[in-house]
């Protein structure tokens, strides 16, 4: 495991914890897209089914469990505990526009046509677009709390670091996973506009 991969995982974890702490401490999920969080819970669920079939390392298992638990706690906070503060009016992205093409594509373009592999592919494609309801919500309301922008910054940083990890792995191990790399690059592009705003607005 290389430094980019570790830092990528750490910033992913940091993003998830920042969001969860923001909700718990402020007792509010205002400005947070519940739909994006449902999609991330679905991403982890469909990707980490290999927890039951394939042991990689203690690190790998622990991180998977932590991501899964955090994702479900976040969804619970938004839709149950702090439901009253949830801005469902502005969380109006149509999920079927993402789920239908992603499902179709995961059946068409995968490494092998087996249930687990199709679900893994589905999770990779879905992750690449899961943040869109959140970005849509921000562009609709025209505002985002600072803490929400920090969350998005660390999520974007995680994606950028994973690309560096893949470049590293390609050169050192001759390893690359085309599905993960293409989706990962697409996903990172979605954050570019946000990164630009994060830097320029941060200066104002």
């Amino acid at each position: 495991m290389n430094i980019f991969r570790i830092l990528g995982d750490v910033s992913h974890l940091l993003a998830i914890i920042i969001l969860l702490l923001k909700i718990v401490k402020s007792k509010s999920c205002a400005g947070i897209s519940g739909k994006s969080q449902i999609l991330f819970a679905l991403v982890f669920t469909t990707r980490y089914l290999d927890l039951f079939t394939n042991f990689i390392s203690v690190y790998n298992t622990v991180m998977k469990v932590v991501f899964l638990v955090c994702a479900y706690i976040t969804v619970y906070m938004i839709y149950v505990k702090f439901r009253k503060t949830f801005d469902s009016e502005n969380d109006s992205f149509r999920l079927e526009f993402l789920l239908v093409p992603v499902t179709g594509l995961s059946f068409l373009e995968n490494h092998s046509f087996t249930p687990l592999e199709i679900l893994w592919t589905f999770s990779i494609y879905l992750e690449s677009v899961a943040i869109l309801p959140q970005l849509f919500m921000i562009s609709k309301t025209g505002e985002a709390e600072t803490i929400t922008t920090h969350y998005l910054f660390f999520l974007g940083l995680y994606r950028a670091l994973y690309i560096a990890n893949w470049v590293w792995r390609y050169h050192t191990e001759n390893f690359y996973d085309q599905i993960a790399v293409v989706s990962g690059v697409v996903q990172t592009i979605f954050y570019c506009d946000f990164f630009y705003l994060y830097v320029t607005k941060g200066r104002q």
Partner: peptide, 10 residues
């Protein structure tokens, strides 16, 4: 293609 690929990333 990379069949039987082990997904070791998160």
């Amino acid at each position: 293609s990379q069949k039987g690929l082990k997904h070791d990333e998160l």
